[in-house]
């Protein structure tokens, strides 16, 4: 187990290098110049421009710039922005809001998705299952921002149950509506996966065995079917938590939540490559860590892959 964990952590290094390299290259290739973006209409004196370019190593070849950056990252230094603030501080300042949003959405999604999925799986082909199917297709089909804007207008403005935007109300009131919108959209996929998986398991031979042993339907479902049905679902759930951190960008913008999504967008507009790459690197890292956690906990639910 320990050997496996160490091996997996070592495997993360090339993945992290590859991912950051691609992101770094993409920001490097972004049209426009960071310094003219910084100053806008009024051009700076040549000497000042040259000084800034030197301070930020902007004239070094791409590969050197990337090398400097990545060496810094491994020391925990994500660089500084044009105002001299450490990028890591900027991100960490914004991270709690995003984290609160993503976690709330994830937990809501878990409940909604699992309940609908299990219900549909157990009542396959009946009215409840069809209703669940329509519900999931609806939320999968309608773009998230449409639902977000609709919910914001109706519950925030029209009914006034929650603030339409901002996080002044704090957790949970400020996060409940945006999280619910994210959750419902993502719950559809989870519900369908859970349902399909459960329907498959319900056909399994070992459930016939359970019936031959004279077990009650309740014991067959809870003791034998659900745990097997959860095997693919757990993988999906683990990875989707990481995905939700990244997916919060649009929702953050709509509900005016000061998270890393907003920071990302403004940094792209300002050509602040260090911040863009910093956020992306962090998200890649989070994704890798969650992936590892999923794989490590997988054995708890499926003994066949126990390490």
């Amino acid at each position: 187990m320990l050997g496996y964990t160490v091996r997996r952590i070592l495997q993360m290094i090339p993945v992290l290098l590859g991912a950051t390299f691609i992101i770094y290259a993409l920001t490097f290739l972004m049209p426009g110049d960071p310094i003219s973006a910084l100053t806008g209409e009024r051009p700076l004196p040549e000497a000042t421009v040259a000084q800034i370019r030197q301070a930020y190593h902007l004239d070094d070849p791409f590969i050197i710039q990337y090398g400097n950056y990545i060496l810094g990252v491994f020391r925990g230094d994500f660089g500084i922005d044009f105002f001299g603030r450490p990028v890591l501080d900027l991100i960490l300042e914004r991270l709690p809001a995003t984290f609160a949003l993503a976690m709330t959405a994830w937990v809501l999604k878990l409940f909604v998705g699992l309940i609908i999925g299990v219900y549909g799986g157990l009542r396959r082909g009946q009215a409840g299952d069809h209703f669940a199917l329509v519900f999931t297709v609806l939320f999968m089909g309608v773009p998230g921002f449409v639902i977000a804007l609709g919910a914001q207008t109706y519950f925030g403005v029209h009914l006034g149950w929650v603030d339409p935007a901002g996080i002044r109300a704090g957790w949970p009131m400020a996060f409940i509506l945006p999280a619910l919108v994210m959750a419902l959209e993502a719950a559809a996929g989870l519900a369908r996966l859970t349902r399909t998986s459960l329907v498959d398991v319900l056909r399994a031979e070992y459930l016939r065995t359970a019936k031959a042993k004279g077990l009650s339907p309740k014991r067959i479902i809870w003791g034998h079917a659900l745990r097997n049905a959860m095997i693919p679902v757990v993988t999906y759930l683990g990875l989707s938590l990481a995905g939700m951190l990244g997916g919060a960008v649009i929702i953050e913008a709509i509900f005016n939540i000061p998270g890393i999504g907003g920071l990302m967008v403004s940094s792209i507009n300002n050509k602040e490559g260090t911040i863009v790459v910093g956020i992306a690197t962090l998200l890649v890292l989070v994704y890798l860590v969650f992936n590892l956690l999923v794989d490590l906990t997988y054995g708890l639910i499926d003994p066949r892959v126990r390490i």
Binding site: A204, E205, Y206, R208, T209, A212, K213, R227, I301, D302
Partner: peptide, 15 residues
């Protein structure tokens, strides 16, 4: 009681 043909699929893999 019953004995099934394929023991691998007749047994629950997670218990």
């Amino acid at each position: 009681a019953m004995v099934f043909q394929d023991a691998l699929s007749a047994l629950n893999p997670v218990h």
